[in-house]
Nucleic acid binder design. Structure first.
Lengths: 168, 168
DNA sequence: TTGGAATGTCAACAACACTGACATAAAGTG
DNA sequence: CACTTTATGTCAGTGTTGTTGACATTCCAA
């Protein structure tokens, strides 16, 4: 029994055994592997990695974002991000424009080539996500998103919500 | 519109826009960061990494598992796993016993020290998972698990289901 | 006895993260 | 204007985790 005291934290409907929680942990582990498998295959052919994918994804989502903003979203050091951005810029997938108001800032945009890669990666990942959603059913989708959102650190949740459902 | 053909794959209740799917992708990204944050902090103090955590976790879940079985679950090369196991064995967290039937096989067990680390890591992760479950509510939990399970590669799903809810 | 499976080890390498230090340019502040 | 801070970039070094390839040992099984 997970909670020998018999208390359940005030949520009277939830009895969470350690075993159930561990299964959730393992589900996250195995699912994340599947989640990254398709993009990883595409990226390895182009000698890119997950770090490139993340940069391309968020530049696509927030065109014109600054380096600092991207740094906050990705949660890595500037040296780490810079290595990735340099190769993407050299290869003509990302364009870096000096800011108009503040000339210290660099605003990042995907080129047409960059957008093409983003579509390819995103299409693979969306296909899997769509299949998972359909297999699980409509009610499951909302629960999935709710639990994931609650699992985030609050800083990350801000970034997540900030770009939430722009087109809806 | 996500699907200009108007088809929806036979699940008449699901209209999945690209935007909704992308939000799901981002939710996975941000949530996984939160999911690993607590163990990562504990591990870095002990100069271990996620690879050690994974090994410890699955040895705890399946005591006596062979190296080959662990290899299949973790999906890494034996050289990579061996490096991790060697340090865990040297540090007295894992015990490797020669198989009785097949003496080529090594059966892996956590020592009391190993179990203690597992409890510490697992407790941190379960606390976050429990909080997320409670914040999202009981209905959400089932949906969460269903979507994650559907997102796995079939090989991984086998491993996942094989150790499913042993105590339930 | 020979073949193959399971395991372990060595070497080399790459991706991706980190720290620390330093440089440059531009903006803000006194 | 002098000074500080901010944003960015770069160089060097290090660590973890993953990869390939090669090779040795042990041992089951045909």
């Amino acid at each position: 029994m997970a909670d020998p005291t018999g208390h359940n934290g005030g949520e009277s409907l939830l009895f969470l055994t350690d075993e159930q929680l561990r299964k959730g942990i393992e589900a996250m582990f195995f699912a994340y592997r599947g989640f990254t498998a398709d993009p990883d295959r595409i990226l390895s052919e182009k000698s890119y990695g997950r770090a490139h994918h993340r940069a391309v994804h968020f530049i696509h989502r927030a065109p014109g974002t600054t380096v600092n903003n991207l740094l906050a979203i990705l949660g890595v050091t500037k040296q780490s991000l810079n290595r990735v951005l340099r190769s993407l810029i050299e290869d003509g997938l990302v364009e870096s424009r000096v800011g108009k108001k503040d000339k210290r800032e660099r605003h990042l945009y995907l080129t047409e080539t960059g957008e093409a890669l983003e579509r390819e990666l995103s299409a693979a990942q969306r296909t899997r996500m769509r299949a998972a959603y359909r297999a699980a059913g409509p009610d499951a989708v909302q629960g999935f998103r709710q639990v994931l959102e609650a699992m985030m650190d609050s800083d990350m949740r801000k970034h997540y919500l900030a770009m939430k459902d722009k087109t809806v």
